[in-house]
Amino acid sequence: MLHIFCPHCGELRSEEEFHASGQAHIPRPLDPAACTDAEWGDYMFFRDNPRGLHHELWIHAAGCRQYFNATRDTMTYEILETYLIGTKPQFVNQVPAIRKGDQA
């Protein structure tokens, strides 16, 4: 069971208090109407799903009910950092994630 540092509460708490909410840093397109179906589908469904560092969104659901981000290694499950929404992670993957446009 993971041990997660809630940056809002300033405490390490057990995973049972939290809820994982998927990959972080996926902003909602500012003008959805301008998106093609493919772009909208990418926004909703397509994820990096990396082996290794993953920036992900968590909510301290049974605590302060605040969302925050975490950088976690999906192989070892080690959490390298948690950080506030709107801030950038300190730990990033060497290889950039694939975004729309890189697709072969």
Partner: peptide, 18 residues
């Protein structure tokens, strides 16, 4: 479970989480 990784090697993403 490793399909996302394989897709990455192939240069695209999948609507899949492991």
């Amino acid at each position: 479970g490793n399909s996302g990784h394989m897709a990455k090697l192939a240069g695209f993403r999948l609507p899949v989480e492991s």
